[in-house]
Design a protein around this nucleic acid. Sequence first.
DNA 1: TTAAAATAAGCAATCGATTGCATAAAAATA
DNA 2: TATTTTTATGCAATCGATTGCTTATTTTAA
Lengths: 344, 344
Amino acid sequence: MKNQKRTTIYDIARKLNLNASSVSRALSNTSKVSEATKKLILDTAKEMNYQPNSLASNLRRGSNRTIGVVVPRINQNFFANVIAGLEEITYENGYNLVICQSNESYEREVECVNTLINQQVNCIVISVTADFKEDAHIRNIQKHGIQLIQFDRVADEVDTLKVVNDNKQSSIEAISHLISQGYKRIALLEGPQNLNIFRQRKEGYLEALAIHGIETDPLLMKKNAWTKELSVEATRELLSLSNPPDAIFASTSDFSALGVLEVATKMGFSVPKQLGICGYSNEAFTEITSPSITTIDQHSIKMGNAIARLYFKEAKSEAEFSVPKIINIKPELIIRASSLKDKS
Amino acid sequence: MKNQKRTTIYDIARKLNLNASSVSRALSNTSKVSEATKKLILDTAKEMNYQPNSLASNLRRGSNRTIGVVVPRINQNFFANVIAGLEEITYENGYNLVICQSNESYEREVECVNTLINQQVNCIVISVTADFKEDAHIRNIQKHGIQLIQFDRVADEVDTLKVVNDNKQSSIEAISHLISQGYKRIALLEGPQNLNIFRQRKEGYLEALAIHGIETDPLLMKKNAWTKELSVEATRELLSLSNPPDAIFASTSDFSALGVLEVATKMGFSVPKQLGICGYSNEAFTEITSPSITTIDQHSIKMGNAIARLYFKEAKSEAEFSVPKIINIKPELIIRASSLKDKS
DNA sequence: TTAAAATAAGCAATCGATTGCATAAAAATA
DNA sequence: TATTTTTATGCAATCGATTGCTTATTTTAA
């Protein structure tokens, strides 16, 4: 069974005393085959359990109806959802997805990209690693005439199609909400600043404070607090200050926010009365913690949809496709108990 | 830029006044090329930004170093983790993953499988839909000489490599634990019985009760309660019985268990004092509900690893690979507050 | 009945890399 | 120096499907 030979169009042609070209035409249903032989060919194909060899036809046509995806982690909620959203639309269009994960390693990301280039995918959809160093591999995609769409974590300086959240705006909304609830000393847990998304969230934080005439305090801005562990650490330091914050914006993730909540509870700060909390991503669990956590929904599935639609629109238009174009998906502030000082 | 031509080995050969075969040999680093020309070729390849065309070489070699995966939903925790586990090992071996989701639709599953067959993947890894009808498409994979590994939700009657959880055993452990805590009327939320995993979990439930000499009560076994909504419904009915259960085993998922918890709380049953709860899958949130939920961890990442390792072991052995072989991953009962009657 | 038009089917090149076989050149041996 | 062995390179077929061009056959029009 291992070395069983597959049926090819030549096998079908031989059996019917026809030429392979006729079989090909019958199968692809293009003109120039009589109805009678077409039926004959289709029946024999089914009978012989024929399955077309995509490798061959893709090689010939120079396209393989495939979109390659490179993400840091497949099993991270946000990325899994974006991929699900992508899959929905690509499937409708008869395309396939090849998925790679860079595991937050720059070297591995480069390898993934190269593999996808070799596979001649029609488009590469990428969200770069936190470990991002150079953009040569990204530019190389374009050099090979492959459509490129960056999303969420993007290399700003490369001109490509981009689908992003408006991180700055959502931060502004989150902070404004906290301020409107009466919180006055708002701390920030930052992510690595080499990633655009974390830079933008910080900008939003700073701008919101400025708008409301609140002075910033360097003591309240914690760098690199982007895992639950790091966040626990940072929160402990913040809450030990002689003048501790009365709210914490965990701009990196809901996991960080969860860390904040745990430490706060342990240290006897009541949430939201003494400490307001806002996370980021709207992970499923934020709804069921006590108190539930205020957070920002990134509409990840919609984002996936938008990326795929962008590709199919751009790819089908004959226009120059390299016109830089940025699609902004508006995130949504989900207000829950952890930031409702008013009502507590 | 759109129609930019890619560099091929012929371009390199022409530039160096060599034959393409030498270029190919130099690049694949097989013998029979002098060190001098090899260096020359490699340098020119880099200079010309050459990327091999995998389609061509795969066609020629008849293999494309790719594993196809078909799962019901990419963004479901369990599957996302299995995929992550798969990816880890396949990457180490220089293979790629092509991922498809069937969206719990049988028709779509068949399509996915066909696409993967056409793509000549080396192996198909599949977990079937709840909507499972016939196994012709699964058998077809084998007919085409493609390695096949089923996992978790498997079509029992097809002889293939399988990687599964011991669902029956884990159910027995869960129920035994509940009994040991003093619960006496234990209800079961079942999943669709056309899926092996749900049948096994039910078997385990029945067997555990039998072992402990507890009679079963048909009123306590709720069919098809496998989403949070259905589970909420079922729980409401159960708790409205004149003689309600004192524990509920949500064998379908933690989401169902969450539904149980919510209804119980709303109806004034205190958990775990009056009602014990056990879920399934160890979703992240089970740790942070109040009370936290007892559940069963399926070791999903390890499962993905095991599947991939199985393939690479079987694929490399020259032995008949179709020997049916089943790998059992032992799930682990994670005991949390929701089932600790003793201490409450 | 014959010429023109339309249709059906075959031929052969092509996509790019791989590989068995043949040959030329260099190295080793006699 | 002549002969054998080794090494490096070229030639050409191959993987399977697609497609422009040609030829054979049928249909339609004159």
